[in-house]
């Protein structure tokens, strides 16, 4: 890797963001963490280069994950960055909403091995580069 690829993890639960921070860094990625919607938008502005991929939780303080997703996809600077929505809301309507707003994937956290999440992220990044 010429430059380090950075993942922005937007997740307020300490136990869960520790898991994703760890598994992505073990897999060779750089990590930035935001614990609420406002912080996430601030990170987007300050990160240079922009993150390669974003892991986004829905139930986060201040600005909801859906709203963050809307803002990301509505901004020409960021709309092409793949977003994996990782949530424990398993309602079908939430999944449809996230995909309609432009999420690349909607994963229910408890249903996926962290390593699997990294593999899915890598696939999305590879597709992006091609």
């Amino acid at each position: 890797m010429a430059t380090e690829q950075k993942i922005l993890i937007i997740e307020d639960d300490t136990f869960i963001n520790r898991i994703y921070k760890r598994v992505f860094s073990l897999s060779g990625f750089g990590i930035e963490l935001a614990q609420n919607g406002e912080e996430a938008m601030a990170k987007m502005e300050s990160m240079n280069p922009a993150p390669t991929l974003i892991i986004l939780d829905i139930m986060i303080p201040k600005i909801s994950g859906f709203e963050v997703l809307k803002r990301l996809k509505g901004d020409v600077r960021w709309q092409k960055i793949p977003v994996i929505v990782m949530t424990n809301l398993s309602e079908k309507t939430d999944e449809e909403k996230a995909l309609n707003l432009g999420a690349s994937l909607y994963l229910v956290k408890s249903d996926h091995n962290p390593r699997e999440v990294v593999l899915k992220a890598k696939e999305l990044i590879d597709k992006q580069i091609v």
Binding site: D13, F15, I16, I19, R22, V23, L26, M59, T87, N88, L89, S90, V108, K109, S110, N113, P114, R115
Partner: peptide, 18 residues
């Protein structure tokens, strides 16, 4: 309730699998 049950479950499963 499903969300609240899944959250600690994620922490248990995720850490164990890692």
């Amino acid at each position: 309730a499903s969300h609240e049950l899944r959250t600690p479950l994620t922490a248990i499963r995720g850490n164990m699998e890692m």
